[in-house]
């Protein structure tokens, strides 16, 4: 057995053992902070809670006179092409938004940052910045606000607002 082999066998065994532990929520707070490169995979696809909702980001402006504009949809989803089974780059942007929204919901649920701390977190800032650039501001708009709308169902879609931000300066 070569020296490299002698080193790699225990390393691989340890990697597999940590991967097994990382599938359980109890061990994730210990492992996640040390896994910046995501070398420990999470294999619990679509479980225990499968994604049965679509998330939509909307934005509106508040004008100088205090009135607000209508909500405008922030474009994230692209319609899935017929060849998506082979080529589907559009899935990435919706996955990024889903991840950011899940992070916001997790932070809210955890309660560590609180309502005042949430606007300083990365997923919040990411969505805020993207929304502010993706939708042209109202000519009289001085501040803007974002909201997350969740939709379920296919033919009869049900909409629900799950998050409303404060107003932020343009």
């Amino acid at each position: 057995m070569s020296l490299l082999s002698l080193l790699l066998w225990p390393l691989v065994a340890l990697w597999l053992a940590i991967t097994l532990l990382a599938q359980h929520r109890r061990f994730q707070p210990l492992i996640n902070p040390l896994d910046g490169f995501h070398v420990i995979p999470r294999w619990t696809f679509f479980a225990p809670n499968p994604g049965v909702r679509d998330y939509h980001l909307v934005v509106r402006d508040r004008r100088r006179d205090g009135s607000t504009t209508d909500w405008k949809s922030v474009p994230v989803y692209t319609p899935r092409p017929g060849c998506a089974w082979l080529w589907h780059p559009g899935k990435r942007s919706s996955k990024i938004m889903n991840d950011a929204i899940q992070s916001i919901k997790f932070l809210q649920k955890q309660g560590e940052v609180g309502a005042t701390g949430l606007p300083f977190t990365m997923p919040y800032l990411l969505l805020l910045r993207y929304a502010s650039h993706a939708v042209p501001p109202d000519p009289d708009g001085t501040e803007f606000q974002i909201a997350i709308i969740e939709s379920t169902g296919h033919d009869n879609r049900k909409l629900e607002c799950s998050f409303l931000s404060d107003f932020h300066s343009r």
Partner: peptide, 17 residues
């Protein structure tokens, strides 16, 4: 093996599944 097993076990623990 871990990928398939963990995906299955997590679904087994889920009432929705």
């Amino acid at each position: 093996t871990l990928a398939y097993f963990a995906a299955g076990a997590a679904k087994l623990a889920s009432p929705v599944w």
